[in-house]
Amino acid sequence: MDLPELIKPNGVYVADHHSLMDLVNAIVYTGESLASLRSAVDGYFRSIENAMENSIDDFRRQLQDAQSRLSDARAALSACEDSGYYDDDGNYVRPNCSCERAEVREAESEVDRIRKILERLEAIKSKVDSELYKYRQPFGVVIPGGGDGVLEYLSDNQSKEASDFMNRLLEIIEEYLSVNVSADGGVTSTPPKEEPIEITRSKADAFREASVRVMERQRTEQPSSHPNNAVALCLGCGRPVVACICANGPLQRERIFNYDISR
């Protein structure tokens, strides 16, 4: 991330503390979104695993049926071959078991065919299981976790720690600025200072410009960035649809202050 040089490396420089609130909102947003995405990705992988497992079970049943038919065909062939007899002249009359023999061959071929398919399907499933096993390893510093562990760490730990840290910082800043903030994020002891429209607009412009910069960087640095780099967002909350929190409602997230403002 290309950040501007620090204006006050040894002092305090906060030109607009609302921008810090926006950042803590973005962090909370990131944590919640990643939690939703984690659940969606997990559901997708599980649906594939289940579908594969069901299909393999189906082929196992087919193999059992085919083996049963083979067993019946062999029994029929054996019965046929045992049905030979000696005629009145003492000659052994060999029975014609060509049909039974053909049925055994056909049944063997069917068993072989299904077994090969099953082995192939189980081999594919095994590869999938192996990759998903790695993906589901919990996050660890010494032994690295898998992707799911990373998302869990980000959504459950890192984003919470970051937002707690930032909230403590904001508490100090707001006390310093003598701004009392109510639980719903409004100013209580002093009249709310509405931001002029120009400031709101310039903030939005700044965010848009930053987004474009980040998008450009993603395009050049990340091979997985998709050519059009666009993703569907909910109009209500502006999040990717998997991470939507507003169910298409007009809600907008407000910063929630959890600390005791009476201190």
């Binding site: 991330m1 040089e5 620090l6 002092g11 906060v14 921008s19």
Partner: peptide, 15 residues
């Protein structure tokens, strides 16, 4: 979105 907001905030918070 996180990085964009971080870049914007960095222009207002610089210590």
């Amino acid at each position: 979105q996180l990085e964009a907001q971080a870049l914007v905030t960095a222009t207002q918070w610089s210590d």
